Amino acid sequence: MDKEAQKQRSKLKRRERWSRIWGDGKQRWVFITFALAVVLGLLLYFVIPRAPGVNWGDQTSSTALTSTNTSGTYSTTPTNFDFSAEVALDFDARGSYIPTKLYDLEAIIYDLDTTVQIGTGKMDGSAKLPGRSITTVTMPLLFQMSFTNTSDTTYSDVIRSCTNSGNSFPLTLSFTYKISGVIGSKSAKLQSQDLTCPVTLSLSS
């Protein structure tokens, strides 16, 4: 009987120690639920993708526009211009812990001074954005617009910038894009006075 009583007392003591540490059944469930919520919150923090920030390639606008090795032309009658280029963009995904995919990247190009549209851009396919890093993406641009006459300020701005090398080419690029795992389209806007025209336009005959 003494041994049996000792066993019972030992069992009761273990239960008491367990209860002091973990509480009763209801308290244990509260603790477990809270712990699971914390773990789930941490898990979601690390696995939910985030929309990246957008900047000029290499964080500078002066070299962001490059030529596509195709000639560009402009005309006075009719009044228009037509040339292509590429823009380098840095997508900052350092806020994400998992890789994501960039797709449906499009742009509308405006004259920075007159705010008139002078071109568009679209990236074919998609691009992988590794987490915790900055990825440079290149997007084709098409500068193509017609005007009433050569006195149009926007037309004059483009011709002045793109017929003489070294002249500034002030632009606004307005982007829309999608990120896998992120609901809806995202938008961004970049502006710069420091861009230079990547082509030298020639007068079409």
Rank of each mutant, 00 (worst) to 15 (best):
D157G: 01
Q193I: 07
Q144E: 13
G125K: 03
T176V: 10
Q117T: 13
Y155V: 03
I118E: 06
M139E: 12
I118N: 06
I134A: 01
T115V: 08
Q193G: 05
M123G: 01
K128Q: 12
Q117V: 04
K122F: 12
G125W: 09
S185A: 15
T136E: 14
M139G: 02
P130W: 03
Q193L: 15
S156Y: 01
S133H: 07
A127Y: 05
P170I: 02
S126D: 12
V182E: 06
Y177D: 04
S168Q: 14
K186D: 06
Y177S: 02
F175V: 03
G121W: 10
T172Q: 12
S187R: 13
G121P: 08
Y155S: 05
T114V: 11
P130M: 05
L195K: 02
S133A: 13
S151H: 11
S174D: 06
T136A: 13
G119W: 03
S161W: 00
S165A: 15
S156D: 14
Q193F: 12
F175D: 01
P130L: 08
D194K: 13
S180T: 14
L171K: 05
G181K: 09
S165I: 09
G119N: 07
L195V: 00
T176H: 04
Y177N: 01
T148A: 12
T138C: 02
F175L: 12
L142T: 00
Q144C: 07
G121N: 09
V158Q: 04
G131Q: 02
T120S: 15
L171A: 07
S168I: 09
Y177H: 03
V137C: 11
V182F: 05
D194N: 13
Q191E: 15
F175H: 07
S192G: 11
G125F: 11
S180R: 12
S156I: 05
D152V: 01
N167P: 02
G184I: 11
T153N: 12
K178I: 05
G181P: 05
S180H: 08
T150M: 03
K122V: 11
P170N: 05
L171Q: 03
T148W: 10
L141P: 03
T148C: 04
